[in-house]
Write a protein that binds this DNA or RNA. Structure first.
Lengths: 200, 200, 200, 200
DNA sequence: GATGAATGAGTGTTCATTCAT
DNA sequence: CATGAATGAACACTCATTCAT
């Protein structure tokens, strides 16, 4: 009814804002991976992002908020990964795919460091811990559902307990990640062994 | 005239010295587990050990030396754990024993924190990383030997590859540790699943 | 074609401008009283005024200009108070009136804080100090005149020196203000004592 | 009974400690008087004291603790001043003495500034406010006692109420201090007027 | 040998102010 | 004109380390 009113003042540009946040997050990820969360100063991060310290504080209210945002990013990525298990194609292939993706991610220089820093921080920040816990539970549920569906399609030994297997897979994923990231192995041997045990 | 002077260069009471170091290490483990390696100040640690800061520096030349010593302690404990697999009794029982021991350790409040801090620090300290890598390889070798022996005794499916299985077990152990420590589960379900897969 | 443009250089709606300044000043008084001049940020003040920081800077060129404006307001109020001494009615009653007004003002939560902040700032800003000094002298002169007039009307002991008494009254007013504002007393006892000494 | 045991480690030197604290306090008083409590940075103060910032923090745990200590000093000085009223000699002379001392103190460049800063800070720090309130009450009580004693000796109009007069004197003292410190007058006129009113 | 004291370098965070939109 | 965004400079405070006692 009312004509589109021009609000006074400079309009906000949500795209630029998001882009800015993204750039800061990327810089923060790099710094945290390299020096740890406590070791990476906001000065480091803002310099890596190419902005001033004060500008960083316009996008994130505190250093803690930054790590929370980083952790949320990581969580989103994990959930997307599990989603890939439910896609089309034979289950065995999809599982191998996902395990390979985990191993590949683990090979990225900063992946493990980030992972560890987030986990370590979670032990001290109840807020971060709660967020991670909740995400983990959602992930386990989705994983169990996917496994049950595979059993229904006859692609997975129906005598296995989906919930228990989901947990085991989650554990293996974590361990595989650390294994590869620490350079102990490339993950191929462990992946093959697991698929064999699952008769896939 | 002059009182009997201690000869310079001679170590004075090495027993007391070792005891002092041990106490400092224990205090440091507690502080690091609670606040992280960067978060635990040498003031915190020396206070927890009941000595002055300057005294701490007479036992350890730097804060970094402290974490190295802590990591060495942890490594020793892991190797002892694998050694339990090679003891007398049925293999299945021993494996369950060790997995239970891992889960129990993971339930200790500070275990995961310490674990994470050491791993995270290893990514930044080449010296620490080298130490851990070497220990890990020794551990994997011993584990593979133990598995092969179990196969030879007919206690384990001989078609499995001992080296690959050793890696998988190592991965599972790491993942199980994190799983339990983070409160996702108590480890029983995952342990049972693993034993079942191994037909044990 | 082009819409009617305002001539450059012409002040735009001076009434709105003054109103805006007044609102900012009120917000600033509240913030300064609550947190002190250094403690009150321009962000606080502009938020309290319901405008943006940049807009505040269009009404006042700096934070210092703001406190100067606040001090001018206060000065005006003091002069108005002295003016009430010269009004109609018996002098004793008027004096009691004014002293009561001072005590009442002192009871306002933010009055003393503002007073103190202005005084403290005056010690650092020569410009503010000069302004206050001049106002104080004008006030003392007016007060002495009022006292002399009261003596002429036979309402005040003619043996007292008007100028000296003006100073004493000014001192007492300041002290009374602080006394009441700090909650030491309600001012009644001190006021009564003073009137008794003056035989009023 | 037990022989004097040499405690291990470097013994503390309480004299040096006190001297250090005193020097820091003096530096802080100077800085606060010049720039205000919020305007004086700990860097300013430690530089003025000729020590490092970190050293300052070994004597005072926070900037707030510093101002509290300054306020305690001032309080002690005020109490000492009132004590001078109770000394030997005619009361009128003693009172004039004390008023002169106040005026002289007010002439010291930093006196008023310090006074104002403490008062302003008291409005924000409940702890400081409580300390000042308590000291003020003790001071008023001592003052009333002194006045009553003077009345008993026939040196002061016995019809005056000691408690009320104590309050008035306190108010006058505060006002006189501000009066002189702000350069409005030298205090002589106001002092004379007051003594005259008291028939001293 | 043990410790109190000292400190330079750094921490995360805030602020008054400017400028482009 | 109004405002979002940007920032250099500063802030209180902490820390790992050294050194004289």
């Amino acid at each position: 009814m009312s004509p589109p009113r021009r609000l006074p003042g400079r309009p906000v540009d949500p795209v630029a804002r998001a882009e800015r946040s993204r750039a800061i997050l990327a810089a923060a990820r790099a710094c945290v991976a390299r020096k740890g969360f406590h070791g990476a100063s906001v000065a480091d991060i803002s310099a890596a992002a190419g902005i001033s310290i004060a500008s960083l504080y316009q996008s994130f209210p505190s250093k803690d908020a930054l790590i929370l945002a980083i952790a949320e990013d990581e969580t989103r990525a994990s959930i997307a990964l599990v989603g890939r298990l439910a896609g089309p194609g034979p289950f065995a292939e999809r599982l191998r795919d996902v395990l390979d993706a985990i191993a590949e991610e683990a090979r990225r220089a900063d992946a493990l460091a980030l992972h560890l820093e987030i986990a370590a921080e979670a032990l001290r920040s109840p807020r971060l811990a709660a967020m991670l816990r909740q995400a983990q539970e959602a992930l386990l549920g989705a994983l169990a559902d996917t496994l049950a569906a595979a059993q229904a399609r006859g692609e997975l030994d129906p005598s296995l307990d989906p919930a228990g297997l989901a947990r085991l897979l989650d554990i293996v994923a974590d361990g595989l990640f650390a294994h590869v990231a620490l350079g102990i192995g490339d993950g191929a041997a462990a992946t093959a062994q697991l698929l064999r045990l699952l008769r896939l």
